[in-house]
């Protein structure tokens, strides 16, 4: 009975996603679950719709940059927190992870008003910084745990053997933390790639990420093109989830 209940719950979790993917293969111009005939018609439609293609490129670029920045900055910060007895370490760690408890709506409103004020509205930089803030807590937590597991003796050994701190970081610490770094990067990429709420608030018409574009498309008209685009999003996400799982990401999920 428990097994059946679990199966039902999984069905509930996956139902909307599965249905979107299924629906995307319909040959018809309206939403009826295709049972006997399938077509890639709406994928062709989606890929010839420049707004979606642009949005996809923007989302991928944004996610990559945000993940890169968040991972790099968080690596440095986590290293500082783990290796140095800084006054207020606990406070700093709390500060770096605090965007986690700020609702995306709240941060979205704040960013909307902020980027307008400093003239970064409709500008990638504003969007990038916002995404870095949103994904940083995950990077910090992952990398903090990762670096705590790197024995300090390894670093000392490298430096006694003549490595400066920078060369030691590049040759010893980074390779030893590679798994955690990959995890943090993939996680940040995924989170940025799927971020909707904050982005929808702050983004201008010229810079619509894919989820925002899909949302706007849905409020405008509705045809299976959007299902095809969504399926591509799901595909990308699932590939990255798979990669992240290979890197051991889900063993370190923030709980």
């Amino acid at each position: 009975m428990m097994r059946a209940f679990n199966a039902a719950m999984i069905a509930l979790m996956l139902a909307p996603i599965v249905l979107v993917v299924w629906m995307s293969f319909t040959p018809e111009a309206f939403f009826r679950v295709p049972l006997d005939s399938f077509s890639l018609r709406w994928y062709r439609e989606a890929l010839s719709y420049p707004d979606f293609v642009d949005a996809f490129v923007l989302s991928a670029k944004l996610a990559a940059l945000a993940a890169l920045m968040a991972t790099a900055l968080s690596f440095l910060a986590a290293y500082g927190l783990v290796r140095y007895r800084l006054a207020g370490r606990g406070f700093l760690l709390g500060f770096f992870t605090s965007p986690l408890v700020v609702p995306a709506v709240v941060f979205g409103i704040a960013m909307l008003q902020f980027v307008n004020r400093i003239g970064l509205y409709n500008h990638l930089v504003g969007l990038l910084f916002a995404h870095v803030v949103v994904v940083t807590p995950y990077a910090i937590r992952t990398l903090h745990a990762t670096l705590q597991a790197v024995p300090e003796e390894m670093e000392w050994a490298a430096m006694v053997l003549g490595a400066t701190r920078l060369r030691m970081l590049a040759r010893v610490t980074v390779p030893l933390a590679a798994r955690g770094i990959a995890t943090a990067f993939l996680f940040c990429f995924l989170l940025s790639f799927s971020e909707v709420t904050m982005t929808i608030f702050m983004t201008g018409p010229a810079l619509q990420t894919l989820p925002v574009r899909i949302y706007n498309y849905l409020t405008d008209r509705i045809d299976p093109t959007v299902a095809a685009v969504s399926s591509l999003v799901v595909l990308v996400s699932l590939c990255l989830v798979f990669l992240a799982n290979l890197a051991g990401a889900f063993k370190r999920l923030p709980r």
Binding site: M13, P16, P211, S237, L238, V241
Partner: peptide
């Protein structure tokens, strides 16, 4: 199994809500 429960969270909410609206 945990992965199965977590992964939908990493698909953006617009797509999922759209899926629910189809249902």
């Amino acid at each position: 199994l945990i992965l199965v429960y977590v992964s939908p969270w990493l698909v953006n909410t617009v797509v999922k809500s759209f899926g629910w609206s189809l249902l």
